[in-house]
Design a binder for these strands. Structure first.
Length: 843
DNA sequence: TCATACCGGGG
DNA sequence: GTGTACGGTATGA
């Protein structure tokens, strides 16, 4: 560890407590600092020298004596330069008192050289210069970063949430705003009527309240995608000034952002808003960033995430988005509770998931709000590398466009299909960064070795942070900070490989190095597989950095750990193999499509073969119920499930909804009518048969095949369109991911007394297989034999890999014509079929 | 039927 | 200024 590497990673100026920076091209900058000791806020008005890096000084030669080497000293009006060392193309660090002086001079020189007028630095070739936004110029030049000496809880945070009559700011309006202050109290501001002046007065009160609370940070979920653009447009329409920042001018300033909202006036441009002195933080960014690694969220909506993370209050009020204004008119108290719930959850979410961005802001020379939505490669590593090179006085390479070398990928092998028992999953933690560190694979153009130095140090810091986190009491600020630091480091470390493979986006990209990483990765996976197989295991599937394998019957869990440890010992020091999971059985169907039966807990289904939203509910239920006995080796029970389902269909014991498919209409009526004679399609025929000759594309309907070849539309009861906020218990995709399978299922009860009942009595809806409400007058006129065929040909077929042809034919024989294939299943067992062995040499 | 394109959020 | 990956659904050859 060297001091210069510390500078590369953290910057070098110790100034504590910076909570916001606002810099102008004029060289004026404002720095808001919160004293870590007493929390008091001060503003420093400072000057900095705007700078950029050029490949060539030729365009500035016309300045004559006004262009001087830096060591000659700055003087008013002078442009100074410093030549950076080494081979990089960008080698002249040029500064002036005012960015406009610099730009004007460069554009004048370039216009003269090119013989055409240039109006903007964008008109110059991108590889000729590097210009950062003013705040980043300030932070890079000073070596300062945000938040030194501060904890997340030292920030003054406010959450703000708009309730509007709809999503279109051109037409809809704001009627209620929830504001949650730093002390946790929530204020509900409401329009006093429906007139424009009432809304204008509400917007003015919002501004006033924000300024009174004087937060460092304003937070909401989808703040940049909805609330801010909506508020900005309403304020513009109503003529209300929107000064949300800490300076009287400017108010909201748009900045280009790929993941922003369409700019007013030019929907092709996307922008996000900024304002002086406050950081505008969108928890949706934090959620996406978290899920990027964790991949365990049911969705990214506020309610779903809050529930998943245990942030939702027991008495949380839910109102469906499209109903909010109607509900407000009938029952305003409900919407008030709803809005207060929203801001409370946002506050919790921001704290729970926002720590990583907070930690990054203590490292990288960018505003906190930019680090919150930046990609870790272009948004964190690249600025760190640029600062490191300038700190070391080294010339920078320009962006490389990539030499056309294709980016080679990871390995994926399917070794066997069918059912295996005693399955173990072993995988390598952080495979790619481990390989980069182990084999010192970094960008060729990074002659200082900054990227690898940063990755090494981040890994060390992460281990230390994890240890600190474990030592701190749960829920304590120390633990929060340590976990946030660990998450931030992990994020950046894991992006180092992606950084290599993104030519054109990252300054030091190197596709050859990236390919070397994946090549090493394939070699490690191949070694793993060979060595596991050599120790008596049966390989099932291997993907990128992990492998599923089965172990012999006599093995104990200790044997499983032993074999993983033995193979781990054969790997390079920094490549660590771990035992990630143990399962009683696995059905391997196709690559990335499998079912796992844990020793304890619900069935796990992966891949489209086993999970699909358009699947008829009865088919999916059949699969879930049949998979458990299949994985336990009880084929007679699999047959029972099949026969029970067929019987339920034949007796019409299943509600119609269970055979209906949920489809989205993609053709307009005129489009369908044009092709109708050539090909009839069930969903549209169902619409037409129901008298629906007009519809809009995108509409979702449930349709089924009825008797006599008819196509029918299933009209659903109100309040069940799958739009989940209003009915969270039906919208938890998480429940679908790890499906808890009831042994006794409604469909299985079809042989019971209820099966004989025709349709349920009117006015008392029943529940279908997936728990949805049923129409009171269920027609149950579906085409039985069509659905029996579907069950056999589509759903039962997903189990075929696990069965011999004879057993398959016997189990799924039609009970009405059983004789041909009938055979006793008592001794039959599922099978596992080895597939053609993949070449396991190093790629 | 199988491969490619598009989406993920907010009221 | 610059996306990410991933798994799922929707769409077209």
């Amino acid at each position: 560890m060297t001091a210069i590497e510390d500078d590369w990673l953290w910057g070098w100026d110790p100034t504590p407590g910076i909570v916001s920076v606002w810099a102008e091209p004029s060289g004026r900058a404002f720095v808001w600092r919160r004293n870590p000791a007493d929390g008091r806020l001060v503003r420093d008005d400072v000057r900095y020298r705007p700078w950029l890096v050029l490949a060539d000084l030729a365009d500035l030669a016309h300045l004559g004596a006004r262009l001087v080497a830096e060591r000659s000293g700055a003087a008013p009006g002078r442009v100074t330069y410093r030549e950076l060392a080494g081979p990089g193309a960008l080698r002249y660090l040029v500064r002036a008192d005012d960015m406009r002086t610099l730009i004007t001079a460069i554009l004048a020189g370039a216009s003269r050289r090119l013989g055409r007028p240039l109006g903007h630095l964008r008109d110059l070739p991108a590889d000729q210069l590097l210009v950062l936004p003013p705040e980043e110029q300030y932070l890079v030049a000073t070596g300062r970063t945000y938040f030194r000496g501060l904890g997340f809880d030292d920030l003054r945070r406010v959450q703000i949430d708009l309730e509007t009559t709809g999503l279109d700011a051109a037409r809809d309006r704001i009627f209620l705003v929830a504001l949650r202050g730093p002390d946790g109290t929530t204020e509900l501001l409401e329009a006093r009527g429906d007139r424009p002046s009432d809304e204008a007065e509400l917007v003015a009160r919002v501004v006033e309240q924000v300024r009174a609370a004087d937060p460092d940070v304003i937070e909401n979920h989808n703040l940049h995608g909805f609330d801010l653009p909506f508020l900005a447009q309403r304020a513009r329409i109503l003529g209300v000034p929107l000064v949300l920042g800490r300076l009287a001018q400017p108010g909201l300033v748009p900045r280009p952002a790929r993941r922003g909202a369409p700019a007013p006036g030019n929907p092709l441009r996307r922008i996000r808003y900024t304002c002086p002195g406050r950081e505008l933080i969108d928890t949706l960014d934090a959620v996406r960033r978290h899920d990027f690694a964790a991949r365990d969220l049911p969705g990214h909506g506020l309610k779903a995430v809050a529930r998943h993370l245990g942030l939702a209050a027991a008495d949380r009020e839910y109102v469906r988005g499209s109903d909010i204004h109607d509900v407000y008119r009938r029952d305003p108290a409900r919407v008030r509770r709803y809005a207060a719930g929203d801001v409370a959850e946002v506050a919790g979410l921001a704290r729970l998931l926002g720590g990583a961005a907070f930690a990054l802001a203590g490292m990288a020379p960018r505003r906190y709000e930019r680090l919150a939505d930046a990609g870790p490669a272009t948004g964190v590593l690249d600025p760190l590398l640029v600062r490191a090179y300038l700190r070391s006085g080294a010339a920078l390479p320009t962006h490389q466009a990539g030499d056309g070398t294709p980016h080679s990928g990871a390995a994926l092998h399917l070794f066997a299909a069918g059912v295996a028992h005693r399955v173990v999953k072993a995988d390598v933690a952080s495979l790619y960064p481990s390989l980069m560190r182990e084999y010192r694979i970094g960008p060729a153009s990074d002659r200082l070795g900054v990227l690898l130095a940063i990755v090494d140090r981040l890994v060390e810091h992460r281990l230390a942070a994890k240890a600190r986190g474990r030592a701190a009491p749960p829920g304590s600020p120390e633990r929060h900070a340590a976990e946030a630091m660990s998450a931030a480091m992990k994020l950046v470390v894991n992006s180092a490989y992606g950084y290599l493979g993104a030519p054109g986006l990252t300054r030091f990209a190197d596709v050859h190095a990236a390919n070397e990483v994946t090549r090493r990765g394939r070699a490690v996976l191949a070694l793993l597989c060979r060595e596991l197989a050599a120790r008596g295991t049966t390989l099932l599937e291997a993907d990128t950095d992990g492998v599923y394998f089965a172990v012999p019957q006599a093995w104990s869990p200790a044997d499983e750990r032993r074999v993983v440890a033995e193979v781990a010992a054969l790997l390079p020091a920094r490549v660590q193999l771990e035992l990630e999971g143990r399962y009683a059985a696995m059905l391997s169907h196709e690559p990335k499509n499998y079912a796992l039966l844990p020793y304890d807990g619900p069935l796990v289904l992966r891949g489209v073969a086993f999970r699909s939203s358009r699947a008829e509910p009865f088919g999916e239920a059949f699969l879930r119920r049949a998979l458990i006995p299949l994985l336990r080796g009880d084929l007679a029970a699999v047959q029972d499930v099949y026969l029970t389902t067929v019987a339920a269909l034949r007796r019409r014991a299943l509600p119609t909804r269970d055979v209906a498919a949920r489809v989205r209409l993609t053709k307009r009526p005129d489009e369908y009518l044009a092709t109708r004679d050539a090909r009839r399609e069930l969903p549209y025929e169902a619409m037409l048969a129901a008298g629906r000759t007009a519809w809009t594309t995108g509409e979702r309907v449930r349709v089924y095949r009825a008797t006599r070849g008819r196509s029918r539309l299933l009209v659903e009861p109100e309040d069940d369109d799958g739009d989940g906020d209003a009915a969270p218990e039906l919208d938890d995709r998480d429940a679908d991911a790890d499906i808890a399978v009831p042994e006794q299922h409604p469909a299985g009860a079809a042989t019971g007394p209820r099966a004989q009942a025709p349709a349920p009595p009117r006015g008392s809806p029943t529940r279908s297989i997936d728990g949805a409400a049923q129409p009171a007058d269920d027609p149950r006129d579906y085409d039985i034999e069509h659905y029996v065929r579907l069950l056999r040909d589509t759903y039962a077929a997903r189990l075929s890999r696990a069965l011999t042809a004879e057993d398959y034919a016997a189990i799924f024989a039609d009970p009405e014509q059983p004789s041909l294939f009938a055979r006793p299943l008592g001794d039959a067992r599922p099978i596992l079929t080895p597939l053609a062995a993949p070449q396991l040499d190093a790629g």
